[in-house]
Amino acid sequence: MTELNERLSAGPAGAVLANTGAGSREVLTWARIGRRLQPLFVPAVILIGWELAVRSGAVPSGLLSSPAGIATGLWFWAFGTAGSGMNAYSGTLIANIFNSGERVAEGYALAICLGVPGGLMIGFNRGFARTLDPLIQAMRPIPITAWMPVSLTLFGVGAASAISLIALGAFYPIVVNSVMGARDINRQLVRAALMMGATPRQIMLRVIVPSALPAIFVGLRLGAGVAWTAVVIAEMVAVKSGLGYVLWDAYYIGRMEIVLGDMAVIGLLGFLSDRLILAVERRVLHWKNDNSR
């Protein structure tokens, strides 16, 4: 008994438990809130320090906007009246989000349509693997940035150029992971389906696809990350609208609060699209989650 008490009062948690009555419950609650807020501590210190550094003049505001300045800039970018006063960006944020979002969605969809079926075929069929896999592996080290002149030559300045780069960039992680998913499937499951009379098509749709889905989703999440990278680069060069275009344009005319606000928006969109894919994955792969719970 004494040993137990000693053990309980040993750590900070023990100190809390040693208190009795209403007070202890309060302490526990505060401790819990503290743990919840812990991830925000370092960002808060940075933001406050940053704000103070700019306000005190230690960092010139022309070089780096303060967090409050960025917030104000974002506010007018989002909700200001378009074409009013001196602010060229006023009220255009939502339209730019839609521009970039649409390109990402189209390029990404194209990458999925080519990458998933292609990867599954390469992973499962040796003939496809021999004909296509070396080509993909040889092309993959060429960064999508290096493709920029080619895509501009082929598609000109415009959305098609950006979409082709996004599709190409997202295609590689999707196809590579789909290949692995199909290659690593349990061949005994294919035998089980064969002995139950499955046709090749049914083997693909009812055995290989579900087996490969966990790997495919890894590729989809990586691909979405590449897609947002690609849209920013493509819009800086190949299109005259969207978040990437604004980013570069604002930099040129010295609007650092828009540059930094733009970065925050791109980061948020990337985060949200990853959460969306994760939510879909949880639903589709419920049989996996049940186990790890």
Partner: peptide, 20 residues
Amino acid sequence: VAPGPERAVVFQEANLFPWL
């Protein structure tokens, strides 16, 4: 000549489909 449903197999590991 090939696997077929008139010859059912019970495998060493059950080989059930884990997603069903």
